[in-house]
Simulated scan of single mutants.
Amino acid sequence: MTTPEPLPMPMLARGQHQSPRHGACFMELASYLAGEPWSDAPNCTHWALAQLARLVNDLTTDEKRPLLAPLVPLVIGQTDFDDGFAEDLALIAATAALPVAAPDLERSIALGMLRIGAGAGDYAHSASAPWPQRAQDALTHEADAEALAWAHRSAARMGRIETGASAATSLTLVSARAIAESSAPDAQDRLRELLRSAIAWAHERSGTDPATIAALRPDQWQDVVAAA
């Protein structure tokens, strides 16, 4: 019995591209597959999920980036979420980053987690279960004691600040960067798993089954981006 050859994957590239002739990033390929104008911020994907996809795309090495391609179809149509969805994704990213983050970034991540639903002061947040509790558990079991104490002191000095898109965006950015820059030997795999987890949560929130979405086929993208 012969094993079928694996399908070729698109050679995704970092950054934004003016047209397919100059390459394609994760979200640009999503815009193409969705039949939208070429863009790295298409309407077919919620802005917070698109932000994370762009971060993971750009922080992934050239060698590993084609492995992200099978996830592209899974972000299409994931749009209809409330304001707390961005905070959900920020906590997902922070919880994934905390065990491997360098000390300077660990402090920023811990502070961000405290502000978005992990139990510091009277902060307003919209994150949904189970992520605030998982963030609290991660801070309890994964955070360095000095980093956590610093984060609590900083949160207390800051006082009440409304959270939302800005705080979520910043925490997602720092967390993805912390994973990519960590010394963990599987940092690239952790980045890809972060995006996979965020996509899985989007489908759970929207009540859709990612298993029903057709796999990415070469005929869908070979006219746009080169095969690896």
Rank of each mutant, 00 (worst) to 15 (best):
E5V: 15
P70Q: 09
E162N: 13
S197W: 01
A178Q: 07
W47C: 04
G35P: 02
A102D: 15
A226M: 09
M11D: 12
G23T: 06
A149G: 05
R192M: 13
A180I: 03
H141E: 11
D40E: 15
R115N: 03
P42S: 07
T140P: 00
L68H: 03
P218L: 06
P20N: 09
A178L: 10
Q78H: 01
A24C: 15
P8R: 12
A127E: 00
S206E: 14
A93Y: 01
H17D: 09
D83R: 13
L105T: 14
P10N: 03
A215T: 13
T208V: 05
V100P: 00
L216E: 02
S182Q: 09
A187E: 04
S182R: 09
W201Q: 14
P20R: 10
Q188P: 05
G119S: 06
H125Q: 10
A214L: 11
W47F: 13
D223F: 07
Q188I: 05
R217M: 14
T208Y: 00
A214S: 15
S183T: 10
A155R: 11
K64T: 05
A120L: 13
D219I: 15
D189F: 02
V75L: 05
L173G: 06
P218H: 06
W201D: 13
Q136E: 12
L12T: 04
D137A: 14
